[in-house]
Amino acid sequence: MRAWAGSWAFWALLSAGFAALTAIFAKIGVEMINSDLATLIRTVIVAGVLAAIVAVTRQYQPLAEIPARTYTFLALSGFATGASWLCYFRALKLGDAARVAPLDKLSIVLVAVFGVAFLGERLSALNWLGIVLIGCGALLVAHKG
């Protein structure tokens, strides 16, 4: 188990499971509240849980030692996360979770394209086939018919 818990795949699969629960819980939670306020409440809870984890595990480090470039990209990531969450909760408020989540997961396709375009990552033909299938699958699941 320890070797498995040290692998990226283990954590990615846990992330997928929690993301699925997030969609279901959020869809129920946003039923009788404005989606932006729901996002704020969720964000406060996430920040509190993360602050507790960092404190308990002593993973903090002096903020002055963190490079400016790191702050810049974490800030940009934070803005993108906030925008994503606001859009996601609005979509859940308006649509079915079973259709919203697959379209949201088109981010997988975009990450692959952006990773190649901006980070110099390389994908094989088989990897690209998978990306195309993910995109097609997301669109098929999201289709109401």
Rank of each mutant, 00 (worst) to 15 (best):
W4K: 00
A5H: 05
G6D: 04
W8Y: 00
A9G: 01
A9W: 07
F10I: 12
F10P: 09
W11F: 15
A12D: 03
L13A: 10
G17W: 03
F18E: 01
A19S: 09
L21A: 13
L21W: 05
A23G: 14
F25S: 08
F25T: 13
A26S: 13
A26V: 09
K27W: 03
K27Y: 07
V30T: 10
V30N: 04
E31R: 12
E31N: 06
E31C: 00
N34T: 01
D36K: 04
D36Q: 06
A38R: 01
T39I: 00
T39D: 09
L40E: 02
I41Y: 14
R42L: 14
R42C: 12
T43D: 10
T43H: 11
V44M: 11
I45E: 15
G48E: 06
G48V: 10
G48D: 05
G48Q: 07
V49F: 04
A52I: 11
I53K: 06
V54W: 02
V54M: 12
A55C: 10
Q59Y: 00
Q61P: 01
A68W: 11
A68N: 07
R69G: 01
R69L: 09
T72G: 08
L74M: 13
A75T: 14
L76T: 06
L76W: 00
F79V: 15
A80H: 07
A80Q: 04
A80C: 14
T81K: 13
A83P: 05
S84N: 10
S84D: 11
W85Q: 13
W85M: 08
C87Y: 03
C87N: 05
C87P: 02
A91M: 10
A91Q: 04
K93I: 05
K93W: 08
L94W: 05
G95D: 07
D96Y: 05
D96A: 10
R99G: 06
V100I: 12
P102Y: 07
P102T: 10
P102D: 08
P102K: 03
D104L: 04
K105N: 12
L106Q: 01
L106N: 00
I108D: 03
V109P: 06
L110E: 01
V111N: 13
V111M: 14
V111I: 08
A112H: 02
V113F: 15
V113E: 05
G115W: 03
A117W: 12
F118R: 01
L119I: 04
L119A: 14
G120V: 15
G120Q: 06
E121K: 01
R122Y: 06
L123W: 02
S124A: 10
A125R: 11
A125K: 06
L126D: 10
L126V: 08
N127T: 11
N127Y: 07
N127M: 13
W128D: 09
G130Y: 04
G130W: 02
I131V: 15
I131E: 02
V132K: 01
G135Q: 08
G135K: 03
C136T: 12
C136D: 08
G137H: 04
G137E: 05
A138T: 06
A138S: 12
L139P: 06
V141T: 13
V141K: 11
V141S: 08
H143E: 04
H143R: 14
K144F: 06
K144Q: 14
K144W: 12
G145E: 14
